[in-house]
Design a protein around this nucleic acid. Structure first.
Length: 432
RNA sequence: GGAGGGGUGCCCGAGCGGCCGAAGGGGUGCGCCUGGAGAGCGCAAGUACGGGUAACAGCCCGUACCGCGGGUUCGAAUCCCGCCCCCUCCGCCA
Protein backbone atom coordinates (compact mmCIF):
# COMPACT_ATOMS: atom_id res chain seq x y z
CA UNK A 1 0.00 0.00 0.00
CA UNK A 2 1.25 3.43 -0.88
CA UNK A 3 1.99 5.92 1.87
CA UNK A 4 -0.49 8.75 1.49
CA UNK A 5 1.43 11.05 3.81
CA UNK A 6 4.57 10.59 1.79
CA UNK A 7 2.75 11.21 -1.47
CA UNK A 8 1.23 14.40 -0.07
CA UNK A 9 4.68 15.75 0.63
CA UNK A 10 6.45 14.40 -2.47
CA UNK A 11 4.05 14.68 -5.39
CA UNK A 12 6.63 15.19 -8.13
CA UNK A 13 8.99 12.54 -6.86
CA UNK A 14 6.10 10.10 -6.59
CA UNK A 15 5.15 10.67 -10.22
CA UNK A 16 8.72 10.39 -11.38
CA UNK A 17 9.34 7.14 -9.57
CA UNK A 18 6.07 5.50 -10.49
CA UNK A 19 6.52 6.45 -14.14
CA UNK A 20 9.38 3.98 -14.35
CA UNK A 21 6.84 1.20 -14.41
CA UNK A 22 5.43 2.58 -17.60
CA UNK A 23 2.20 3.73 -15.97
CA UNK A 24 0.39 6.99 -16.36
CA UNK A 25 1.73 8.02 -12.99
CA UNK A 26 0.61 11.61 -13.11
CA UNK A 27 -3.03 10.64 -13.52
CA UNK A 28 -2.84 8.14 -10.66
CA UNK A 29 -1.02 10.39 -8.22
CA UNK A 30 -3.18 13.38 -8.96
CA UNK A 31 -6.33 11.38 -8.48
CA UNK A 32 -5.00 10.16 -5.17
CA UNK A 33 -4.18 13.68 -4.06
CA UNK A 34 -7.54 15.03 -5.14
CA UNK A 35 -9.35 12.30 -3.26
CA UNK A 36 -7.14 12.85 -0.27
CA UNK A 37 -8.06 16.49 -0.13
CA UNK A 38 -11.74 15.75 -0.55
CA UNK A 39 -11.48 13.25 2.20
CA UNK A 40 -9.91 15.70 4.61
CA UNK A 41 -12.47 18.37 3.87
CA UNK A 42 -15.31 15.94 4.44
CA UNK A 43 -13.70 14.73 7.60
CA UNK A 44 -13.44 18.24 8.98
CA UNK A 45 -17.06 18.94 8.13
CA UNK A 46 -18.18 15.67 9.62
CA UNK A 47 -16.25 16.18 12.83
CA UNK A 48 -17.85 19.58 13.35
CA UNK A 49 -21.36 18.21 12.87
CA UNK A 50 -20.76 15.27 15.14
CA UNK A 51 -19.36 17.56 17.76
CA UNK A 52 -22.56 19.58 17.59
CA UNK A 53 -24.69 16.47 17.86
CA UNK A 54 -22.70 15.22 20.80
CA UNK A 55 -23.15 18.40 22.72
CA UNK A 56 -26.88 18.42 22.03
CA UNK A 57 -27.14 14.85 23.23
CA UNK A 58 -25.34 15.76 26.42
CA UNK A 59 -27.69 18.64 26.89
CA UNK A 60 -30.65 16.30 26.52
CA UNK A 61 -29.20 13.93 29.06
CA UNK A 62 -28.74 16.73 31.51
CA UNK A 63 -32.28 18.05 31.09
CA UNK A 64 -33.73 14.55 31.45
CA UNK A 65 -31.94 14.12 34.72
CA UNK A 66 -33.29 17.43 35.90
CA UNK A 67 -36.75 16.32 34.91
CA UNK A 68 -37.16 19.02 32.26
CA UNK A 69 -38.88 16.80 29.75
CA UNK A 70 -40.35 19.57 27.66
CA UNK A 71 -37.05 21.26 26.97
CA UNK A 72 -35.40 17.96 26.20
CA UNK A 73 -38.03 17.12 23.62
CA UNK A 74 -37.46 20.48 22.08
CA UNK A 75 -33.80 19.90 21.57
CA UNK A 76 -34.46 16.44 20.24
CA UNK A 77 -36.23 18.00 17.33
CA UNK A 78 -33.09 19.87 16.42
CA UNK A 79 -31.07 16.69 16.14
CA UNK A 80 -33.07 15.24 13.30
CA UNK A 81 -31.76 17.70 10.76
CA UNK A 82 -28.21 17.35 12.04
CA UNK A 83 -28.43 13.60 11.71
CA UNK A 84 -29.53 13.71 8.12
CA UNK A 85 -26.71 16.12 7.31
CA UNK A 86 -24.25 13.79 8.95
CA UNK A 87 -25.60 10.82 7.06
CA UNK A 88 -25.27 12.74 3.85
CA UNK A 89 -21.64 13.60 4.36
CA UNK A 90 -20.88 10.14 5.66
CA UNK A 91 -22.10 8.69 2.41
CA UNK A 92 -19.93 11.02 0.37
CA UNK A 93 -16.95 10.32 2.55
CA UNK A 94 -17.43 6.57 2.34
CA UNK A 95 -17.36 6.79 -1.41
CA UNK A 96 -14.22 8.92 -1.41
CA UNK A 97 -12.56 6.67 1.17
CA UNK A 98 -13.41 3.58 -0.79
CA UNK A 99 -11.96 4.93 -4.02
CA UNK A 100 -8.85 6.30 -2.31
CA UNK A 101 -8.18 3.06 -0.48
CA UNK A 102 -8.69 1.11 -3.68
CA UNK A 103 -6.08 3.22 -5.43
CA UNK A 104 -3.64 2.98 -2.56
CA UNK A 105 -3.82 -0.80 -2.41
CA UNK A 106 -3.95 -1.58 -6.12
CA UNK A 107 -1.24 0.77 -7.33
CA UNK A 108 2.16 -0.91 -7.39
CA UNK A 109 5.03 0.28 -5.23
CA UNK A 110 7.28 3.20 -6.16
CA UNK A 111 10.47 1.99 -7.80
CA UNK A 112 13.65 3.12 -6.03
CA UNK A 113 15.57 5.93 -7.78
CA UNK A 114 18.28 3.41 -8.74
CA UNK A 115 15.82 1.35 -10.75
CA UNK A 116 16.29 1.80 -14.48
CA UNK A 117 13.27 2.73 -16.51
CA UNK A 118 12.26 -0.01 -18.91
CA UNK A 119 9.56 -2.16 -20.31
CA UNK A 120 10.53 -5.76 -19.75
CA UNK A 121 13.41 -8.04 -18.90
CA UNK A 122 15.40 -6.89 -21.89
CA UNK A 123 15.90 -3.59 -20.02
CA UNK A 124 17.27 -5.24 -16.90
CA UNK A 125 20.87 -4.50 -16.02
CA UNK A 126 23.49 -7.12 -15.19
CA UNK A 127 25.46 -5.69 -12.30
CA UNK A 128 27.66 -8.61 -11.33
CA UNK A 129 28.75 -11.93 -12.74
CA UNK A 130 30.66 -14.74 -11.06
CA UNK A 131 32.20 -17.98 -12.26
CA UNK A 132 33.39 -19.50 -15.51
CA UNK A 133 30.68 -20.77 -17.78
CA UNK A 134 31.14 -24.53 -18.09
CA UNK A 135 31.19 -26.17 -21.48
CA UNK A 136 30.15 -29.77 -21.11
CA UNK A 137 31.07 -32.05 -24.01
CA UNK A 138 27.42 -32.72 -24.73
CA UNK A 139 24.81 -30.09 -24.03
CA UNK A 140 21.74 -31.82 -22.68
CA UNK A 141 18.84 -30.34 -20.76
CA UNK A 142 18.41 -31.50 -17.18
CA UNK A 143 15.10 -33.26 -17.86
CA UNK A 144 16.85 -35.72 -20.15
CA UNK A 145 19.78 -36.26 -17.81
CA UNK A 146 17.62 -36.47 -14.71
CA UNK A 147 15.46 -39.17 -16.23
CA UNK A 148 18.44 -41.14 -17.44
CA UNK A 149 19.98 -41.00 -13.97
CA UNK A 150 16.73 -41.94 -12.21
CA UNK A 151 16.53 -38.65 -10.33
CA UNK A 152 13.27 -37.16 -11.51
CA UNK A 153 10.17 -38.64 -13.10
CA UNK A 154 8.07 -36.03 -14.84
CA UNK A 155 5.49 -38.47 -16.12
CA UNK A 156 4.81 -39.70 -12.63
CA UNK A 157 4.14 -36.12 -11.61
CA UNK A 158 1.47 -35.85 -14.28
CA UNK A 159 0.05 -39.21 -13.28
CA UNK A 160 -0.39 -38.22 -9.65
CA UNK A 161 -1.41 -34.60 -9.95
CA UNK A 162 -1.11 -33.24 -13.46
CA UNK A 163 1.26 -31.51 -15.77
CA UNK A 164 3.69 -29.27 -13.97
CA UNK A 165 4.14 -31.60 -11.03
CA UNK A 166 7.22 -33.76 -10.63
CA UNK A 167 8.34 -36.75 -8.62
CA UNK A 168 11.88 -36.83 -7.27
CA UNK A 169 13.27 -40.28 -6.70
CA UNK A 170 16.34 -41.88 -5.18
CA UNK A 171 19.36 -39.61 -5.41
CA UNK A 172 17.11 -36.89 -6.81
CA UNK A 173 15.09 -36.82 -3.62
CA UNK A 174 18.26 -37.06 -1.56
CA UNK A 175 19.71 -34.13 -3.47
CA UNK A 176 16.73 -31.95 -2.59
CA UNK A 177 16.97 -32.91 1.02
CA UNK A 178 20.70 -32.18 1.09
CA UNK A 179 20.22 -28.75 -0.47
CA UNK A 180 17.55 -27.80 2.03
CA UNK A 181 19.73 -28.73 4.96
CA UNK A 182 22.72 -27.01 3.38
CA UNK A 183 20.76 -23.78 2.93
CA UNK A 184 19.23 -23.85 6.39
CA UNK A 185 22.53 -24.60 8.12
CA UNK A 186 24.22 -21.76 6.30
CA UNK A 187 21.50 -19.33 7.22
CA UNK A 188 21.48 -20.28 10.87
CA UNK A 189 25.29 -19.97 10.97
CA UNK A 190 24.79 -16.47 9.61
CA UNK A 191 22.47 -15.45 12.40
CA UNK A 192 19.09 -16.24 10.92
CA UNK A 193 16.24 -17.49 13.06
CA UNK A 194 14.59 -20.52 11.50
CA UNK A 195 10.82 -20.49 11.10
CA UNK A 196 8.49 -23.32 10.14
CA UNK A 197 5.16 -21.73 9.27
CA UNK A 198 1.82 -23.11 8.06
CA UNK A 199 1.64 -23.81 4.34
CA UNK A 200 -1.92 -22.54 4.21
CA UNK A 201 -2.81 -18.97 5.04
CA UNK A 202 -5.91 -16.84 5.36
CA UNK A 203 -6.93 -13.87 3.28
CA UNK A 204 -5.51 -11.20 5.60
CA UNK A 205 -2.13 -12.86 5.37
CA UNK A 206 -2.26 -12.99 1.59
CA UNK A 207 -3.21 -9.34 1.53
CA UNK A 208 -0.44 -8.28 3.89
CA UNK A 209 2.44 -9.15 1.61
CA UNK A 210 0.63 -8.01 -1.52
CA UNK A 211 -0.27 -11.31 -3.20
CA UNK A 212 -3.91 -10.43 -2.73
CA UNK A 213 -5.67 -9.12 -4.60
CA UNK A 214 -2.90 -8.70 -7.17
CA UNK A 215 -1.93 -12.35 -7.61
CA UNK A 216 -5.21 -13.98 -6.79
CA UNK A 217 -4.97 -16.18 -9.87
CA UNK A 218 -1.48 -17.36 -9.01
CA UNK A 219 -2.45 -19.01 -5.73
CA UNK A 220 -4.23 -22.27 -5.08
CA UNK A 221 -7.33 -21.61 -3.04
CA UNK A 222 -9.28 -23.95 -0.82
CA UNK A 223 -12.77 -22.60 -0.95
CA UNK A 224 -14.20 -24.75 1.79
CA UNK A 225 -11.91 -23.25 4.38
CA UNK A 226 -11.09 -19.91 2.79
CA UNK A 227 -7.39 -20.72 2.78
CA UNK A 228 -4.62 -20.19 0.26
CA UNK A 229 -1.63 -22.44 -0.34
CA UNK A 230 1.46 -20.33 0.08
CA UNK A 231 3.32 -19.38 -3.11
CA UNK A 232 6.43 -18.66 -1.00
CA UNK A 233 7.44 -18.65 2.66
CA UNK A 234 7.63 -14.88 2.37
CA UNK A 235 3.89 -14.77 2.92
CA UNK A 236 3.55 -16.48 6.30
CA UNK A 237 6.93 -15.40 7.63
CA UNK A 238 6.58 -11.70 6.88
CA UNK A 239 3.03 -11.77 8.20
CA UNK A 240 4.24 -12.88 11.59
CA UNK A 241 4.77 -9.15 12.02
CA UNK A 242 1.27 -8.20 10.99
CA UNK A 243 -0.39 -5.90 13.53
CA UNK A 244 2.71 -5.58 15.65
CA UNK A 245 5.08 -2.90 16.86
CA UNK A 246 8.82 -3.56 16.80
CA UNK A 247 11.40 -1.59 18.70
CA UNK A 248 14.13 0.09 16.67
CA UNK A 249 16.82 -1.57 18.75
CA UNK A 250 15.49 -5.02 17.85
CA UNK A 251 16.08 -4.42 14.15
CA UNK A 252 17.10 -5.87 11.86
CA UNK A 253 15.20 -9.13 12.29
CA UNK A 254 16.51 -11.89 10.04
CA UNK A 255 14.48 -15.05 9.49
CA UNK A 256 14.92 -18.10 7.33
CA UNK A 257 12.29 -20.60 6.37
CA UNK A 258 12.04 -23.70 4.28
CA UNK A 259 8.67 -24.47 2.72
CA UNK A 260 7.22 -25.96 -0.41
CA UNK A 261 5.79 -23.29 -2.71
CA UNK A 262 2.57 -23.75 -4.65
CA UNK A 263 1.86 -21.77 -7.77
CA UNK A 264 -0.83 -22.22 -10.36
CA UNK A 265 1.24 -20.58 -13.09
CA UNK A 266 -1.91 -20.15 -15.13
CA UNK A 267 -1.24 -19.24 -18.71
CA UNK A 268 2.41 -20.24 -18.77
CA UNK A 269 3.68 -22.14 -21.75
CA UNK A 270 6.66 -22.71 -23.98
CA UNK A 271 10.27 -23.73 -23.54
CA UNK A 272 10.52 -22.05 -20.16
CA UNK A 273 8.00 -24.48 -18.75
CA UNK A 274 9.93 -27.62 -19.63
CA UNK A 275 11.45 -29.77 -16.94
CA UNK A 276 12.13 -27.98 -13.70
CA UNK A 277 12.09 -24.53 -15.22
CA UNK A 278 8.58 -23.89 -14.03
CA UNK A 279 6.55 -26.23 -11.82
CA UNK A 280 3.42 -25.97 -9.69
CA UNK A 281 5.09 -27.16 -6.52
CA UNK A 282 8.70 -26.65 -5.57
CA UNK A 283 10.88 -26.33 -2.52
CA UNK A 284 12.50 -23.12 -1.49
CA UNK A 285 14.45 -21.70 1.39
CA UNK A 286 13.56 -18.07 1.90
CA UNK A 287 15.16 -15.30 3.91
CA UNK A 288 13.06 -12.45 5.26
CA UNK A 289 14.40 -9.31 6.89
CA UNK A 290 12.59 -6.61 8.82
CA UNK A 291 14.81 -3.54 8.78
CA UNK A 292 14.96 0.05 9.88
CA UNK A 293 14.23 2.45 6.99
CA UNK A 294 17.61 4.11 7.48
CA UNK A 295 19.58 1.02 6.52
CA UNK A 296 17.25 -1.26 4.62
CA UNK A 297 19.26 -0.89 1.42
CA UNK A 298 22.38 -2.05 3.21
CA UNK A 299 20.34 -5.08 4.20
CA UNK A 300 19.39 -5.63 0.57
CA UNK A 301 23.05 -5.63 -0.49
CA UNK A 302 23.89 -7.92 2.36
CA UNK A 303 21.21 -10.38 1.25
CA UNK A 304 22.57 -10.41 -2.28
CA UNK A 305 26.06 -11.07 -1.04
CA UNK A 306 24.79 -13.84 1.16
CA UNK A 307 22.91 -15.53 -1.67
CA UNK A 308 25.97 -15.10 -3.89
CA UNK A 309 28.09 -16.84 -1.29
CA UNK A 310 25.76 -19.84 -1.36
CA UNK A 311 26.05 -20.12 -5.13
CA UNK A 312 29.81 -19.87 -4.92
CA UNK A 313 29.91 -22.70 -2.42
CA UNK A 314 27.78 -24.70 -4.83
CA UNK A 315 30.16 -23.73 -7.63
CA UNK A 316 27.38 -22.51 -9.87
CA UNK A 317 28.09 -19.56 -12.16
CA UNK A 318 25.63 -16.76 -11.58
CA UNK A 319 24.91 -13.17 -12.39
CA UNK A 320 23.12 -10.50 -10.47
CA UNK A 321 20.53 -8.54 -12.40
CA UNK A 322 18.91 -5.28 -11.39
CA UNK A 323 15.31 -5.33 -12.53
CA UNK A 324 13.97 -2.40 -14.51
CA UNK A 325 10.73 -0.65 -13.62
CA UNK A 326 8.64 -2.65 -16.03
CA UNK A 327 9.85 -6.01 -14.74
CA UNK A 328 9.55 -5.13 -11.08
CA UNK A 329 7.01 -7.02 -8.97
CA UNK A 330 3.89 -5.33 -7.68
CA UNK A 331 5.10 -4.81 -4.11
CA UNK A 332 8.82 -4.27 -4.66
CA UNK A 333 10.73 -0.98 -4.71
CA UNK A 334 13.96 -2.57 -5.87
CA UNK A 335 14.75 -6.12 -6.89
CA UNK A 336 17.84 -8.05 -7.82
CA UNK A 337 17.45 -11.38 -9.53
CA UNK A 338 20.14 -13.96 -9.06
CA UNK A 339 20.34 -16.02 -12.21
CA UNK A 340 22.25 -19.27 -12.49
CA UNK A 341 23.75 -20.55 -15.67
CA UNK A 342 22.45 -23.86 -16.96
CA UNK A 343 24.86 -25.14 -19.60
CA UNK A 344 22.59 -27.77 -21.10
CA UNK A 345 20.02 -25.18 -22.09
CA UNK A 346 22.63 -22.46 -22.45
CA UNK A 347 20.29 -20.26 -20.48
CA UNK A 348 20.29 -18.13 -17.34
CA UNK A 349 17.64 -19.26 -14.89
CA UNK A 350 16.27 -17.08 -12.13
CA UNK A 351 17.05 -18.87 -8.89
CA UNK A 352 16.47 -16.03 -6.49
CA UNK A 353 14.66 -12.75 -6.41
CA UNK A 354 15.79 -10.38 -3.69
CA UNK A 355 13.66 -7.35 -2.96
CA UNK A 356 13.20 -4.39 -0.72
CA UNK A 357 9.53 -3.56 -0.30
CA UNK A 358 10.22 -0.50 1.80
CA UNK A 359 6.97 0.37 3.62
CA UNK A 360 4.65 -1.20 1.06
CA UNK A 361 4.02 -4.43 2.95
CA UNK A 362 4.35 -2.86 6.38
CA UNK A 363 1.53 -0.45 5.65
CA UNK A 364 -0.67 -3.29 4.42
CA UNK A 365 0.15 -5.38 7.44
CA UNK A 366 -0.04 -2.55 9.94
CA UNK A 367 3.52 -3.15 11.08
CA UNK A 368 4.99 -0.26 12.97
CA UNK A 369 8.28 0.59 14.60
CA UNK A 370 8.96 2.49 17.77
CA UNK A 371 12.15 4.43 18.35
CA UNK A 372 11.81 5.75 21.85
CA UNK A 373 8.68 7.85 21.57
CA UNK A 374 8.90 8.22 17.83
CA UNK A 375 7.08 5.85 15.52
CA UNK A 376 8.27 4.82 12.09
CA UNK A 377 7.35 2.32 9.43
CA UNK A 378 9.85 -0.55 9.17
CA UNK A 379 10.95 -1.87 5.82
CA UNK A 380 10.46 -5.49 4.79
CA UNK A 381 12.77 -7.45 2.52
CA UNK A 382 13.03 -10.97 1.29
CA UNK A 383 14.86 -13.22 -1.08
CA UNK A 384 15.23 -16.84 -2.06
CA UNK A 385 18.22 -18.55 -0.55
CA UNK A 386 17.53 -20.51 -2.62
CA UNK A 387 14.84 -21.98 -4.89
CA UNK A 388 15.68 -25.62 -5.45
CA UNK A 389 14.49 -26.69 -8.90
CA UNK A 390 16.62 -24.35 -10.94
CA UNK A 391 19.63 -24.95 -8.75
CA UNK A 392 19.18 -28.64 -9.40
CA UNK A 393 18.70 -28.01 -13.10
CA UNK A 394 21.90 -25.98 -13.32
CA UNK A 395 23.83 -28.45 -11.22
CA UNK A 396 22.77 -31.40 -13.33
CA UNK A 397 23.41 -29.72 -16.65
CA UNK A 398 26.74 -28.22 -15.63
CA UNK A 399 28.23 -31.12 -13.72
CA UNK A 400 27.36 -34.18 -15.75
CA UNK A 401 30.40 -36.26 -16.71
CA UNK A 402 31.01 -39.69 -18.16
CA UNK A 403 31.36 -41.05 -14.61
CA UNK A 404 28.22 -39.44 -13.21
CA UNK A 405 27.03 -36.12 -11.87
CA UNK A 406 29.71 -34.36 -9.89
CA UNK A 407 28.58 -32.99 -6.52
CA UNK A 408 30.23 -29.78 -5.28
CA UNK A 409 32.38 -30.31 -2.20
CA UNK A 410 30.27 -28.15 0.08
CA UNK A 411 27.22 -30.25 -0.70
CA UNK A 412 28.92 -33.66 -0.77
CA UNK A 413 28.99 -33.87 3.02
CA UNK A 414 25.25 -33.32 3.12
CA UNK A 415 24.47 -35.71 0.30
CA UNK A 416 26.91 -38.40 1.39
CA UNK A 417 28.54 -38.78 -2.01
CA UNK A 418 30.61 -36.66 -4.34
CA UNK A 419 29.30 -38.28 -7.47
CA UNK A 420 25.75 -39.33 -8.36
CA UNK A 421 25.67 -42.56 -10.38
CA UNK A 422 23.09 -43.72 -12.88
CA UNK A 423 20.36 -45.95 -11.52
CA UNK A 424 16.74 -47.00 -11.60
CA UNK A 425 15.41 -46.30 -8.14
CA UNK A 426 12.17 -48.29 -8.44
CA UNK A 427 11.44 -51.55 -10.27
CA UNK A 428 8.61 -49.85 -12.16
CA UNK A 429 10.88 -47.05 -13.42
CA UNK A 430 10.30 -47.60 -17.10
CA UNK A 431 6.53 -48.01 -16.79
CA UNK A 432 4.67 -44.79 -17.15
C1' G B 1 -18.06 -32.10 14.26
C1' G B 2 -21.20 -31.51 19.30
C1' A B 3 -21.92 -28.67 24.19
C1' G B 4 -20.62 -24.60 27.16
C1' G B 5 -17.65 -20.09 28.57
C1' G B 6 -15.18 -15.69 27.09
C1' G B 7 -13.16 -11.39 24.04
C1' U B 8 -12.51 -3.95 27.74
C1' G B 9 -6.26 0.26 27.96
C1' C B 10 1.04 -2.58 28.57
C1' C B 11 -1.18 -6.74 31.90
C1' C B 12 -5.18 -8.21 35.34
C1' G B 13 -9.99 -6.66 36.03
C1' A B 14 -14.93 -3.54 37.06
C1' G B 15 -18.50 -1.36 34.21
C1' C B 16 -26.87 0.97 35.83
C1' G B 17 -28.20 3.34 27.87
C1' G B 18 -26.22 9.53 29.44
C1' C B 19 -21.65 12.66 34.26
C1' C B 20 -17.04 6.29 30.51
C1' G B 21 -11.48 7.22 27.04
C1' A B 22 -13.53 4.23 30.43
C1' A B 23 -13.38 2.48 38.31
C1' G B 24 -9.72 -0.44 40.92
C1' G B 25 -5.07 -3.12 41.06
C1' G B 26 -0.30 -4.39 38.89
C1' G B 27 3.53 -2.72 35.86
C1' U B 28 6.06 1.65 33.52
C1' G B 29 8.06 6.97 33.63
C1' C B 30 8.99 11.44 36.47
C1' G B 31 9.18 13.89 41.32
C1' C B 32 9.36 13.65 46.85
C1' C B 33 11.45 10.75 50.65
C1' U B 34 16.62 7.75 51.66
C1' G B 35 23.69 7.56 52.86
C1' G B 36 21.89 4.08 48.91
C1' A B 37 17.94 0.63 47.83
C1' G B 38 12.97 -0.81 49.25
C1' A B 39 8.45 0.59 51.17
C1' G B 40 5.39 5.30 51.39
C1' C B 41 3.39 9.57 49.00
C1' G B 42 2.38 12.81 44.62
C1' C B 43 2.10 13.39 39.42
C1' A B 44 2.01 11.40 34.27
C1' A B 45 1.52 8.06 30.36
C1' G B 46 -3.28 4.97 24.56
C1' U B 47 -3.91 4.79 19.11
C1' A B 48 -5.67 6.74 14.51
C1' C B 49 -7.65 10.66 11.67
C1' G B 50 -8.81 15.90 11.00
C1' G B 51 -8.15 21.16 12.35
C1' G B 52 -5.18 25.24 14.69
C1' U B 53 -0.40 27.21 16.10
C1' A B 54 4.14 25.68 14.61
C1' A B 55 10.06 23.54 12.29
C1' C B 56 5.40 17.30 10.09
C1' A B 57 9.48 18.83 18.16
C1' G B 58 5.74 20.39 21.32
C1' C B 59 1.08 22.17 22.62
C1' C B 60 -4.33 23.14 21.99
C1' C B 61 -9.19 21.64 19.90
C1' G B 62 -12.44 18.11 17.54
C1' U B 63 -13.83 13.16 15.85
C1' A B 64 -13.43 7.94 16.03
C1' C B 65 -11.80 3.58 18.66
C1' C B 66 -14.04 -1.23 24.78
C1' G B 67 -12.80 -8.51 18.98
C1' C B 68 -15.02 -7.12 13.66
C1' G B 69 -19.39 -5.42 10.90
C1' G B 70 -24.41 -3.81 10.92
C1' G B 71 -28.97 -2.13 13.72
C1' U B 72 -32.12 0.38 17.66
C1' U B 73 -31.68 5.45 20.15
C1' C B 74 -31.29 12.43 20.74
C1' G B 75 -27.28 9.35 23.05
C1' A B 76 -24.39 2.42 23.22
C1' A B 77 -18.45 -0.60 26.14
C1' U B 78 -23.49 -1.17 27.95
C1' C B 79 -29.64 -3.39 24.13
C1' C B 80 -30.49 -6.41 19.21
C1' C B 81 -28.53 -9.20 14.74
C1' G B 82 -24.45 -11.42 11.83
C1' C B 83 -19.28 -12.80 11.70
C1' C B 84 -14.29 -13.83 13.62
C1' C B 85 -11.07 -15.47 17.39
C1' C B 86 -9.73 -17.81 22.08
C1' C B 87 -10.60 -21.30 26.19
C1' U B 88 -12.88 -25.82 28.55
C1' C B 89 -15.34 -30.60 28.00
C1' C B 90 -16.84 -34.59 24.51
C1' G B 91 -15.99 -36.94 19.76
C1' C B 92 -12.38 -37.93 15.82
C1' C B 93 -7.25 -38.40 14.63
C1' A B 94 -1.45 -37.90 13.13
Amino acid sequence: MLDIKWIRAHRDEAIERLSKRGLDAKAIIDEILTLDEQRRNLQTELDALRSKLNSLSKEIGKLMREGKREEAENIKKQTAQLKSQIEDIEKKKEEVDRRLYELLITTPNFPHPDVPAGKDESDNVVVEQWGELPEPPVKRPHWAIAYEYGLINFKWGSKLAGSGFVVFTGWGARLQDALIRFFLDNAVKNGYVQISPPHLVNEDTGFGTGQLPDKDEQMYYIEKDGLYLIPTAEVPVTNLFRNTVVKAEDLPVRMVSYTPCYRREAGSYGQMTRGLNRVHQFDKVEIVHIAHPDNSYEELERMCEYVGSLLQKLEIPYRRVLLCGGDLGFAAAKTYDMEVYAAGQDRWLEASSISNFETFQSLRMNLKGKDGKKTFIPHTLNGSALALPRIIAAMIENNVTAEGIRVPKALAEYLGTDIIPKGEPLPIWGQD
